[in-house]
Amino acid sequence: MNDFLKISGLCAQIDDNGTPKEILRGLDLEVPKGEIHAIMGPNGSGKSTLSYVLAGREDYEVTGGSAEFLGEDLLALEPEERAALGVFLAFQAPIELPGVNNANFLRTAVNAVRRARKEDELDAVGFLKAVRAETKHLQMSDDMLKRNVNVGFSGGEKKRNEVLQMRMLRPKFAILDETDSGLDIDALRIVAEGVNSFGGRISRHSSSPITSVFWTTSSPTVFTSWRRARSSIAAGAKWRWRSKLRAINNISRRWHERRDRSFAGSRVLSVPGP
């Protein structure tokens, strides 16, 4: 029995200049603990809508269906309550917050979540120690913590910042909305490793919460070998989280030779176009 994430008949619409536009039309999906799912589909098929609806953005009106997460009615919760429960959305286009210091933002978020989870808050020293460990891992400079949130960040820096937030907030379920898009190979490798080592570390310790991940992606056409991977996915092949990383890491090493081996284990939801 899956009591991790269960989406049934989910319908959502958005207000399109006064006329409601239906985007999700009865989506059913179950994500058991510990699985990696890729949501694929062309532009406008509802990948980001699904991400936003699960994270609690108000612009989207849920017109039917349900989403249960860890036995809770996810759709009834405020965005901050969902975050505290363990849902994390890495934004496709991370928002800039002029006047908000990145380190302060991160510490406020971490402590808000810790408070909600009935954990002790981190003091300045404890926070700094924790964040330094993560930034080192993600090859982020301290300078990025001193700057305003995402302001003047390059595309790669923004995505790295998302992964940093994810690692600091320790979610149980992460939605990565095209976290791969717009990145060059090096940035993609760092971001992917950040995500990967996180998932890997947790799954090695059975007492830790198990993270499941959605990775939405539209058309990562930049990568020849990735295009091959996508076609396999579209054909319904199963794949494993690590396979994508391998795909990314070995682009220059003719990854496609190994694709049969790497696509074993998880599932892919291919969303039809609008």
């Binding site: 609690g56 965005p79 901050e80 928002i95 002029p98 406020t108 978020a109 808000a112 979540v113 907030l169």
Partner: peptide
């Protein structure tokens, strides 16, 4: 969008508003 971004990171609405006003 800014408000949602802060809330999606677990920051309660009132605190998120305060952060944006201060900014």
């Amino acid at each position: 969008e800014q408000l949602f971004y802060l809330r999606a990171r677990g920051i309660p609405q009132a605190e998120a508003r305060a952060i944006l006003v201060r900014a």
